[in-house]
Nucleic acid binder design. Structure first.
Lengths: 187, 187
DNA sequence: TAAAAATATGAATATTTATTCATATTTTTA
DNA sequence: TAAAAATATGAATAAATATTCATATTTTTA
């Protein structure tokens, strides 16, 4: 199955990036981790650069919030809570992705075309925040500042959960952390 | 002057890490950026690994908060404000350091001895927060969660200032961002 | 099911990049 | 200030790692 091989390659790459960083990534190790011969990697990708760019592209695509339309009719704080929950759960489940994405964007491997793709998450968040401000629910602070708080916190907290709590994220943690977040941004 | 050469090497390494990541770091480029011959690097460092570890060690040492003792008699919110301000200003001034540190800790270059060094900042923050809880000023939430919010926000916001505001950090920004932070953690 | 096509292998080769070293320059010593 | 020591140079070499390719295996086609 072709997709299976691709996934094995991608998973191996993510796993190894978390372990040794992009600086330590070797094609031979990726192949070994994916249980295949080094040469096989070159059947699926022209070279290392294309492999990494393909993975980046896939991760970017997947990180687009799938739930945007379903929640737009809800109250702002509920929308934000749902986004918070989904983002936090995703980050905990996919902590390796963050490491890869953050390193990749400043690595020498990133292609020009991939540079242009950007997370819709931020824009969507911004939109909700602006609406919240107009409804007088959210502080009238600079949106970028509010976004920095939300995104910085969710990332930092998810890393803590992964590193110090063995990846176990309780409902209580989700609710309490969102509560902190909400207290910061609410009017 | 020996120190000058060392600084040139360190600055070149930081600069290039910001530009191409640790994955893209080449001894020849470091030398060129520092305006010296490649061989000269090997007079100051045994090899690439030692150069990077030395830089990491230096950054870690410098990041220890120098002002701890001066402010411990002040009210908790003032202590936190001062720490916030200093941390934010430092991060904006030294954004390249964060990039280096974050990549380095999971790179294959980090030595065992350097793994043990850790930031006193978190511990100090924890201490202040615990005191704040006992004085009923800070929410009775898990300290690691509060720390994640503070550190995540300050990092994320400093990155925004560097990337989108040309590194210009106004007093207003410092105060407003701290105000968000304080609203999140205060009782 | 036999030939053709596609996929897989990993040792051999090519490429990149770290490191060395013979030589040159600068600084220190006495 | 002249010899000795320290520092600097960058082309040559060594080492690490990406990529290819002759060969083997598996899958598809008809």
């Amino acid at each position: 199955m072709k997709d299976d091989k691709l996934n094995r390659i991608f998973n191996a790459t993510l796993y190894l990036t978390g372990k040794v960083g992009i600086a330590g990534l070797k094609m031979s190790n990726i192949a070994k981790e994916a249980s295949m011969a080094t040469g096989t990697l070159y059947i699926y990708f022209k070279n290392k650069e294309e492999l990494l760019n393909a993975l980046y592209f896939k991760l970017q695509k997947e990180s687009a919030p799938a739930i945007i339309n379903d929640i737009s009719h809800l109250a702002i704080n509920i929308q934000l809570y749902k986004m918070w929950k989904i983002a936090l759960e995703r980050l905990v489940d996919n902590n390796l992705r963050i490491i890869f994405l953050e390193q990749f964007v400043i690595s020498p491997y990133i292609s020009e075309s991939n540079k242009e793709i950007d997370v819709g998450f931020k824009n969507y968040l911004k939109q909700i925040l602006e609406q919240g401000k107009s409804e007088n629910l959210i502080k009238d602070a600079n949106s970028d500042m509010l976004i920095a708080l939300i995104i910085g916190f969710v990332r930092s907290f998810s890393t803590h959960i992964v590193n110090d709590c063995n990846g176990h994220l309780s409902e209580k943690s989700i609710d309490e952390s969102f509560s902190l977040c909400w207290d910061a941004i609410k009017k």
